[in-house]
Every structure is written in C-alpha cells, then in structure tokens.
Design a binder for these strands. Structure first.
Length: 270
DNA sequence: CGCTGACCCTGACGGC
DNA sequence: TGCCGTCAGGGTCAGC
C-alpha cells in the first residue's frame, strides 16, 4: 500500500491528534506482524506522551522522552484516529488510547507491517543504513549517477532500492520513469548524468504532487480519518497496461521487473 | 559485492 | 454459487 506520499499523508494526519496527550492504555490484539511487536511497547508507552511524529523513508517515528515507536505500514497497513466508541474491525491489531478518549489504531490485514520500540536514542538496523530522502537536497541526479556506475540492474529496481534512495515504491517508480522518458528495464549503469538529473527532478515532482493529493488509494489505503487519497486520478502509467499512452496514444506495455508489475510506453521511454 | 527469486500474509477478482 | 489461480502499494533473506 504505502509509499512515501501515503506515509507522509498518514504522518500529517495523525500528528495533531497524538501529540502532547498522556497515553492511558496500549492494547495489542495481534503481535504477529512482519516482526513480533516489541513486548515492552505497552509498558513503555503507557503514561508517556508523544512529543512529535517524524518520518524516515517509509518508517514513522513516534517520539517520546524515553524512546521511539517505529511503525512501518507494509503493504496493507494503515493508522487511523478513532475513539473508544468505535468497535474494532477485523485486523485492527493495536490500539493506543489517549486520556481524551481518542485512539490511534493500527490496522493491517496482510501483517507485513511492523511496530517496534526503540529505547532511548538508539538507532535500528532497519533505518540506520538507508539512502537519502528523495525530497531533500542531498538527493539529486549526481547522487543517482554516482551510485549507478557499473550496475547492471534495471533502473526501476535501482531507484526502488532503499539503500539508493528511500520511499520510491512501485507506483511512483513507474510514474517517474514515464515522466523522464526512461525505459524501466534499462541498465542503471547505462544512463547519462543528464538523464539522472531529469529523473531525480521527476521523482521529487511526482512524490510532491502525490503528497498534495493525499496519496494514492488503490485498494486499502485510507487517511487518518478513513478518507481516500486522490492521486490515482493523476497516474499516467501505473495500472494502465494495455491502455493508450497519454502523450503519444500508443498502447502501453506491461511486464514484470523484480517480480513487480511494470508499465511503460515503448515509444516515449527509451 | 550485486543480483534473482522465494517468502511472509490476507483478500479481491476473474475464469470456469 | 463455489473453487482455483493470480495478483496486490512492502521488505528480508538465502543462494549463486
């Protein structure tokens, strides 16, 4: 489900509802996620206060005085703000209950997500070796060009690698490559510095616009209040295999790269 | 070291 | 109507 824009939409949505209010109860109904939910999580959060909600790549970090809760939404996860009168649905795995009756509720049918407790200021292997944030200035075409040298993997696989750059998932990788006119299966090491400059600009542009639209809802992504994101209306290629290219009207090609569905225009993308 | 494919899990959908 | 195969926005890991 969530790529960077959906995670950022979630962060902005939940933030005002969870900051500065004592947590009175933490309920873990299902701890078997991608990794087991940290057993100390309820104890560490209860009586505690969240001071801010940050994001690193697709990880959300809920900051407190004694440590951080790190949440990943996996493929089907979502966080919603609800209240004690709302009966939990199937797959509502974790409730974080605040003193005012509001609840931060983690929902994840496929259980590929994770909820971990990082004590104190400690880092974690999952976030310590990530590439730059795509919307920050240290991510640019030169960065992509430098790391791509002598790499034979497909450029689409390359930009989806979180050690290269975080937050670019399957939807936005397809979209950015279309905007840049680059074939997804082109070897990463056989692309010019100039074209990587264009690609990094297009990655920033497509992620930025998706955040403005509240993310992309295809199946299960919902915002903190349960509403969908609207960026799917602006998708040029993702989910449009066999349909016509918006630029040249040729039929879009659909294939698989690294086991992920890949759509492009063989005329506009070289 | 880089790359590929299997795998974790549930649910929706299309074909028969 | 039901059964079966396929696919889905994530990432890790073993093996070559």
């Amino acid at each position: 489900m969530p790529e960077l824009p959906e995670v950022e939409t979630t962060r902005l949505g939940v933030r005002p509802h969870v900051i500065g209010k004592p947590i009175v109860r933490v309920l873990v109904r299902e701890s078997r996620l991608r990794w087991p939910v940290s057993p100390e999580l309820p104890q560490m959060l209860t009586g505690n206060i969240i001071s801010d909600v940050a994001r690193r790549g697709k990880y959300l970090l809920f900051l407190t005085e004694c440590g951080r809760m790190m949440v990943h939404l996996g493929m089907s996860g979502s966080l919603r703000i609800t209240d004690i009168n709302k009966v939990p649905r199937k797959h509502d795995h974790i409730d974080i209950c605040f003193v005012d009756g509001n609840i931060l509720r983690f929902h994840d049918p496929r259980r590929f997500g994770s909820v971990l407790w990082l004590p104190g200021e400690s880092g974690h292997e999952l976030i310590d070796n990530l590439g730059p944030e795509p919307l920050e200035d240290d991510f640019d075409g030169d960065h992509l060009y430098r790391l791509s040298q002598s790499r034979r993997t497909a450029v689409k696989t390359f930009i989806m690698n979180s050690r290269i750059v975080v937050g670019v998932g399957n939807i936005y990788a397809n979209e950015a490559l279309f905007l840049s006119g680059i074939r997804p299966d082109r070897a990463a090491g056989r692309i010019s510095r100039e074209r990587y400059r264009r690609l990094s600009d297009d990655i920033k542009a497509v992620l930025g616009k998706a955040i403005e639209s509240g993310g992309t809802t295809l199946r299960d992504f919902v915002r903190e209040d349960g509403s969908p994101g609207y960026f799917s209306q602006q998708l040029n290629v993702y989910g449009r295999g066999g349909e016509t290219c918006v630029r040249c009207s040729q039929k879009l090609t659909e294939s698989r790269l690294g086991n992920r569905s890949t759509v492009y225009c063989s005329r506009c993308q070289r």
